[in-house]
Simulated assay, not measured.
Amino acid sequence: MTDQPTVLILAGKRDGTLDPLAERAGVSHKCRVPINGKPLLEWVVEAVGPAFPDAKVLISIHDPEVIADLPSVVALQAAGRLTLCAAQAGIVESVEHAIEQAGGKSAFPLLITTADNVLAESDYLRDVHQAALAGDGDAVVVLSTREAIRAAHPDGQRRFYEFSDAAISNCNVFWLRSPKALRATEAFREGGQFAKNRARIAKAFGIINLLRFRLGWWTLESAFKAISRRFGVRVIPHITTNGAFAIDVDNERTYGVAELLLKARKG
Protein backbone atom coordinates (compact mmCIF):
# COMPACT_ATOMS: atom_id res chain seq x y z
CA MET A 1 0.00 0.00 0.00
CA THR A 2 1.30 3.44 -0.95
CA ASP A 3 2.63 5.79 1.71
CA GLN A 4 0.64 8.60 0.09
CA PRO A 5 -3.13 8.62 -0.36
CA THR A 6 -5.23 9.93 -3.17
CA VAL A 7 -6.84 13.13 -1.86
CA LEU A 8 -10.43 14.05 -2.73
CA ILE A 9 -11.64 17.59 -2.03
CA LEU A 10 -15.41 18.01 -2.17
CA ALA A 11 -16.14 21.47 -3.60
CA GLY A 12 -19.63 21.05 -5.04
CA LYS A 13 -22.83 22.84 -4.13
CA ARG A 14 -24.77 21.22 -1.31
CA ASP A 15 -28.07 19.99 -2.75
CA GLY A 16 -27.13 21.85 -5.92
CA THR A 17 -28.20 25.19 -4.40
CA LEU A 18 -26.34 28.47 -3.93
CA ASP A 19 -24.77 28.75 -0.49
CA PRO A 20 -25.61 31.94 1.48
CA LEU A 21 -21.91 32.79 1.86
CA ALA A 22 -21.44 32.43 -1.91
CA GLU A 23 -24.46 34.63 -2.53
CA ARG A 24 -23.09 37.29 -0.19
CA ALA A 25 -19.69 37.17 -1.92
CA GLY A 26 -21.23 37.27 -5.40
CA VAL A 27 -19.76 33.94 -6.53
CA SER A 28 -21.41 30.83 -7.94
CA HIS A 29 -19.65 28.29 -5.69
CA LYS A 30 -18.92 28.47 -1.99
CA CYS A 31 -15.35 27.26 -2.62
CA ARG A 32 -14.66 30.62 -4.34
CA VAL A 33 -15.71 32.69 -1.32
CA PRO A 34 -12.66 34.79 -0.33
CA ILE A 35 -11.22 34.61 3.17
CA ASN A 36 -8.02 36.40 4.17
CA GLY A 37 -7.34 37.28 0.56
CA LYS A 38 -7.78 33.82 -0.99
CA PRO A 39 -10.73 31.59 -1.95
CA LEU A 40 -11.62 28.88 0.54
CA LEU A 41 -10.47 26.13 -1.81
CA GLU A 42 -7.05 27.73 -2.25
CA TRP A 43 -6.30 27.33 1.47
CA VAL A 44 -7.22 23.65 1.36
CA VAL A 45 -5.23 22.83 -1.78
CA GLU A 46 -2.22 24.67 -0.36
CA ALA A 47 -2.37 22.38 2.69
CA VAL A 48 -2.89 19.19 0.66
CA GLY A 49 -0.09 19.79 -1.86
CA PRO A 50 2.88 19.87 0.57
CA ALA A 51 1.31 17.19 2.78
CA PHE A 52 1.47 14.65 -0.04
CA PRO A 53 3.86 15.98 -2.72
CA ASP A 54 3.43 13.03 -5.08
CA ALA A 55 -0.23 12.27 -4.46
CA LYS A 56 -3.01 12.45 -7.00
CA VAL A 57 -5.55 15.14 -6.07
CA LEU A 58 -9.23 15.00 -7.07
CA ILE A 59 -11.54 18.00 -6.84
CA SER A 60 -15.27 17.32 -7.13
CA ILE A 61 -17.14 20.41 -8.33
CA HIS A 62 -20.20 21.22 -10.40
CA ASP A 63 -18.41 23.62 -12.76
CA PRO A 64 -14.63 23.08 -13.09
CA GLU A 65 -14.22 26.39 -14.93
CA VAL A 66 -15.02 28.18 -11.67
CA ILE A 67 -11.65 27.18 -10.20
CA ALA A 68 -9.53 26.99 -13.37
CA ASP A 69 -7.64 30.20 -12.58
CA LEU A 70 -6.68 29.42 -8.97
CA PRO A 71 -2.85 29.33 -8.69
CA SER A 72 -2.82 26.12 -6.65
CA VAL A 73 -5.13 24.41 -9.14
CA VAL A 74 -3.03 25.59 -12.09
CA ALA A 75 0.12 24.27 -10.38
CA LEU A 76 -1.38 20.84 -9.72
CA GLN A 77 -2.60 20.60 -13.30
CA ALA A 78 0.82 21.55 -14.63
CA ALA A 79 2.35 18.80 -12.48
CA GLY A 80 -0.10 16.25 -13.85
CA ARG A 81 -1.46 15.56 -10.38
CA LEU A 82 -5.00 16.95 -10.63
CA THR A 83 -8.25 15.34 -11.80
CA LEU A 84 -11.37 17.50 -11.87
CA CYS A 85 -14.53 15.46 -11.31
CA ALA A 86 -18.13 16.47 -11.91
CA ALA A 87 -20.00 16.73 -8.62
CA GLN A 88 -23.10 14.57 -8.46
CA ALA A 89 -26.49 14.90 -6.77
CA GLY A 90 -25.19 13.91 -3.32
CA ILE A 91 -22.03 13.47 -1.28
CA VAL A 92 -21.79 9.69 -1.64
CA GLU A 93 -22.54 9.83 -5.36
CA SER A 94 -19.82 12.47 -5.79
CA VAL A 95 -17.30 10.32 -3.92
CA GLU A 96 -18.19 7.25 -5.99
CA HIS A 97 -17.92 9.18 -9.25
CA ALA A 98 -14.55 10.69 -8.29
CA ILE A 99 -13.16 7.25 -7.41
CA GLU A 100 -14.31 5.91 -10.77
CA GLN A 101 -12.63 8.86 -12.53
CA ALA A 102 -9.42 8.16 -10.60
CA GLY A 103 -9.20 4.53 -11.65
CA GLY A 104 -11.32 2.72 -9.11
CA LYS A 105 -9.29 0.49 -6.79
CA SER A 106 -6.06 2.35 -7.57
CA ALA A 107 -7.54 5.47 -5.90
CA PHE A 108 -7.08 3.89 -2.45
CA PRO A 109 -6.16 4.68 0.23
CA LEU A 110 -8.33 7.76 -0.10
CA LEU A 111 -8.32 10.84 2.13
CA ILE A 112 -11.45 12.97 1.79
CA THR A 113 -11.92 16.56 2.94
CA THR A 114 -13.98 19.59 1.97
CA ALA A 115 -13.26 22.90 0.26
CA ASP A 116 -14.38 24.86 3.34
CA ASN A 117 -11.86 23.13 5.64
CA VAL A 118 -9.55 26.15 5.51
CA LEU A 119 -7.82 25.57 8.85
CA ALA A 120 -6.41 22.18 7.84
CA GLU A 121 -2.60 22.09 7.79
CA SER A 122 -0.14 19.87 5.93
CA ASP A 123 1.39 18.23 9.03
CA TYR A 124 -2.05 17.45 10.42
CA LEU A 125 -3.27 15.79 7.21
CA ARG A 126 -0.07 13.79 6.92
CA ASP A 127 -0.36 12.65 10.56
CA VAL A 128 -3.93 11.49 9.98
CA HIS A 129 -2.87 9.42 6.99
CA GLN A 130 0.13 7.87 8.72
CA ALA A 131 -1.88 6.98 11.82
CA ALA A 132 -4.65 5.47 9.68
CA LEU A 133 -2.16 3.41 7.67
CA ALA A 134 -0.61 2.08 10.86
CA GLY A 135 -3.99 1.26 12.40
CA ASP A 136 -6.43 -1.53 11.68
CA GLY A 137 -9.44 0.52 10.59
CA ASP A 138 -11.10 0.20 7.21
CA ALA A 139 -12.38 3.75 7.58
CA VAL A 140 -11.22 6.57 9.85
CA VAL A 141 -13.23 9.60 10.97
CA VAL A 142 -11.29 12.57 12.37
CA LEU A 143 -12.84 14.17 15.46
CA SER A 144 -12.02 16.69 18.14
CA THR A 145 -13.45 17.20 21.62
CA ARG A 146 -15.58 20.08 22.83
CA GLU A 147 -12.82 21.15 25.21
CA ALA A 148 -10.20 21.26 22.44
CA ILE A 149 -12.49 23.13 20.06
CA ARG A 150 -13.45 25.74 22.64
CA ALA A 151 -9.78 26.15 23.52
CA ALA A 152 -9.13 27.02 19.87
CA HIS A 153 -12.07 29.46 19.90
CA PRO A 154 -15.03 29.57 22.31
CA ASP A 155 -17.48 30.05 19.44
CA GLY A 156 -15.87 27.58 17.04
CA GLN A 157 -18.69 25.03 17.26
CA ARG A 158 -22.08 25.11 18.93
CA ARG A 159 -23.35 21.58 18.26
CA PHE A 160 -21.64 18.46 19.57
CA TYR A 161 -22.33 14.74 19.56
CA GLU A 162 -22.75 13.90 23.25
CA PHE A 163 -21.49 10.52 24.45
CA SER A 164 -21.20 9.32 28.03
CA ASP A 165 -17.44 9.93 28.05
CA ALA A 166 -16.96 12.75 25.53
CA ALA A 167 -18.61 15.46 23.47
CA ILE A 168 -17.14 15.62 20.00
CA SER A 169 -17.43 17.27 16.60
CA ASN A 170 -16.12 16.02 13.27
CA CYS A 171 -13.25 17.65 11.39
CA ASN A 172 -14.44 17.02 7.82
CA VAL A 173 -11.56 14.61 7.18
CA PHE A 174 -12.27 10.98 6.35
CA TRP A 175 -9.90 8.17 5.33
CA LEU A 176 -10.78 4.99 3.43
CA ARG A 177 -8.35 2.08 3.18
CA SER A 178 -9.94 0.18 0.28
CA PRO A 179 -13.14 -0.05 -1.82
CA LYS A 180 -14.64 -2.14 0.99
CA ALA A 181 -14.56 0.96 3.21
CA LEU A 182 -17.06 2.70 0.93
CA ARG A 183 -19.77 0.88 2.87
CA ALA A 184 -19.15 3.38 5.68
CA THR A 185 -19.99 6.31 3.41
CA GLU A 186 -23.60 5.09 3.21
CA ALA A 187 -24.18 7.06 6.41
CA PHE A 188 -23.88 10.21 4.28
CA ARG A 189 -26.23 9.08 1.51
CA GLU A 190 -28.86 11.55 2.74
CA GLY A 191 -26.38 14.40 3.19
CA GLY A 192 -24.82 14.06 6.64
CA GLN A 193 -24.98 17.07 9.03
CA PHE A 194 -26.37 14.74 11.70
CA ALA A 195 -26.06 17.28 14.52
CA LYS A 196 -28.58 19.45 12.68
CA ASN A 197 -30.88 16.62 11.59
CA ARG A 198 -31.42 13.78 14.05
CA ALA A 199 -33.80 12.00 11.66
CA ARG A 200 -30.79 11.34 9.45
CA ILE A 201 -29.11 9.54 12.35
CA ALA A 202 -32.06 7.14 12.56
CA LYS A 203 -32.04 6.54 8.81
CA ALA A 204 -28.27 6.09 8.57
CA PHE A 205 -27.59 4.15 11.77
CA GLY A 206 -30.95 2.66 12.77
CA ILE A 207 -33.61 3.72 15.24
CA ILE A 208 -32.23 1.52 18.07
CA ASN A 209 -28.81 3.10 17.73
CA LEU A 210 -30.45 6.55 17.74
CA LEU A 211 -32.23 5.72 21.01
CA ARG A 212 -28.99 4.51 22.58
CA PHE A 213 -27.34 7.73 21.49
CA ARG A 214 -30.13 9.97 22.77
CA LEU A 215 -30.31 8.16 26.11
CA GLY A 216 -26.58 8.60 26.67
CA TRP A 217 -25.85 4.87 26.86
CA TRP A 218 -22.90 4.97 24.49
CA THR A 219 -19.27 5.70 25.07
CA LEU A 220 -17.46 6.94 21.98
CA GLU A 221 -15.83 3.51 21.59
CA SER A 222 -19.11 1.60 21.85
CA ALA A 223 -20.71 3.96 19.33
CA PHE A 224 -18.00 3.25 16.76
CA LYS A 225 -18.31 -0.48 17.38
CA ALA A 226 -22.04 -0.21 16.65
CA ILE A 227 -21.36 1.82 13.51
CA SER A 228 -18.85 -0.80 12.38
CA ARG A 229 -21.41 -3.59 12.86
CA ARG A 230 -24.02 -1.56 11.01
CA PHE A 231 -21.90 -1.19 7.88
CA GLY A 232 -19.79 -4.34 8.05
CA VAL A 233 -16.46 -2.50 8.09
CA ARG A 234 -14.22 -1.38 10.94
CA VAL A 235 -14.76 2.36 11.44
CA ILE A 236 -12.50 4.02 14.01
CA PRO A 237 -12.14 7.57 15.34
CA HIS A 238 -8.97 9.62 15.14
CA ILE A 239 -9.00 12.30 17.85
CA THR A 240 -7.00 15.43 17.14
CA THR A 241 -6.02 17.62 20.08
CA ASN A 242 -6.08 20.79 17.97
CA GLY A 243 -9.70 21.85 18.04
CA ALA A 244 -9.21 24.40 15.27
CA PHE A 245 -9.31 21.54 12.78
CA ALA A 246 -12.99 21.02 13.61
CA ILE A 247 -13.90 24.57 12.58
CA ASP A 248 -14.90 24.78 8.94
CA VAL A 249 -16.52 27.70 7.13
CA ASP A 250 -20.17 26.72 7.38
CA ASN A 251 -21.92 30.06 8.02
CA GLU A 252 -21.28 33.71 8.89
CA ARG A 253 -20.26 32.87 12.46
CA THR A 254 -17.71 30.19 11.56
CA TYR A 255 -16.46 32.33 8.67
CA GLY A 256 -15.57 35.01 11.21
CA VAL A 257 -13.91 32.49 13.54
CA ALA A 258 -11.87 30.92 10.73
CA GLU A 259 -10.84 34.34 9.45
CA LEU A 260 -9.63 35.31 12.93
CA LEU A 261 -7.64 32.07 13.36
CA LEU A 262 -6.07 32.38 9.91
CA LYS A 263 -4.96 35.92 10.72
CA ALA A 264 -3.51 34.74 14.04
CA ARG A 265 -1.44 32.09 12.23
CA LYS A 266 -0.07 34.70 9.86
CA GLY A 267 0.67 37.07 12.70
Rank of each mutant, 00 (worst) to 15 (best):
132 A>P: 03
214 R>F: 02
96 E>G: 13
109 P>W: 11
11 A>G: 12
146 R>H: 11
212 R>D: 10
24 R>A: 12
254 T>Y: 00
159 R>N: 05
265 R>H: 12
165 D>A: 03
29 H>L: 07
252 E>L: 06
232 G>E: 03
70 L>A: 07
59 I>E: 04
52 F>G: 11
100 E>W: 11
174 F>W: 13
214 R>K: 12
170 N>F: 08
50 P>L: 10
202 A>V: 06
63 D>R: 10
195 A>W: 08
262 L>W: 08
156 G>L: 02
156 G>V: 07
149 I>V: 15
230 R>I: 00
196 K>Q: 13
93 E>F: 10
194 F>P: 00
161 Y>A: 12
28 S>W: 00
183 R>F: 00
222 S>H: 01
207 I>A: 15
149 I>F: 01
3 D>Q: 14
214 R>Q: 13
197 N>M: 15
110 L>C: 10
37 G>D: 13
120 A>L: 14
215 L>Q: 11
2 T>A: 15
97 H>N: 15
215 L>N: 10
6 T>C: 14
155 D>H: 12
30 K>Y: 00
61 I>S: 06
93 E>T: 14
96 E>K: 14
249 V>I: 10
120 A>Q: 11
220 L>F: 04
227 I>S: 00
201 I>F: 09
145 T>E: 10
103 G>E: 02
116 D>W: 04
14 R>Q: 11
221 E>G: 04
35 I>G: 01
33 V>H: 04
192 G>L: 06
262 L>Y: 06
44 V>T: 09
125 L>F: 05
40 L>P: 09
188 F>P: 00
153 H>K: 01
147 E>M: 12
206 G>Q: 03
225 K>A: 08
151 A>Y: 08
211 L>T: 14
162 E>C: 11
234 R>W: 00
202 A>S: 12
233 V>W: 04
223 A>C: 06
31 C>R: 07
227 I>H: 00
78 A>L: 12
195 A>P: 00
137 G>R: 01
69 D>I: 07
117 N>V: 02
184 A>F: 15
234 R>K: 11
246 A>C: 06
220 L>R: 09
12 G>S: 08
10 L>W: 01
110 L>N: 07
234 R>M: 01
65 E>Y: 04
137 G>A: 15
108 F>Y: 14
37 G>K: 10
255 Y>S: 01
